[in-house]
Amino acid sequence: MTHNLILRVIAKFLIPLIIVFALYVQFHGDFGPGGGFQAGVILSAAIILYTLVFGLDAAEQIIPPTILRLFASMGVLLYIGVGVITIFLGGNYLDYSVLGSTQIAGQHLGILLVELGVGISVFSVMLIIFFSFAGRGKT
């Protein structure tokens, strides 16, 4: 697999496009189809493509498993944290309206942050699962 020239060139061309598309899906989810879950999966697909073409060791140098575990928890914590902040600002849990000066601004910020948490967490968990399976049986 590692000496497949066409595969490597095409993968190098495609991976940045996939990453940009993932970011678009993440931050354009308010206006079009998509959101954190889909963006996380697409972003992890980019890294999985990289792993399939360049090998697991090269991929783990880009994103070390320890960082992935940290990210997976950070995403969930970001989600929970937004809820806790809204409590401290005087609202209910996950009531984003108190986050901004107006209700709409608050909702917008809250949804953005929450979707970001979902995206980070899904991205990391998908890669954790993939790396676990791919690294299994290798000594």
Binding site: D30, F31, P33, G35, Q103, Q107, G110, I111, E115
Partner: peptide, 14 residues
């Protein structure tokens, strides 16, 4: 209430 055009996102996240 949310200013989000994609109702799916506002329902899911808010």
């Amino acid at each position: 209430e949310t200013g989000v055009p994609n109702v799916v996102t506002s329902v899911l996240a808010s």
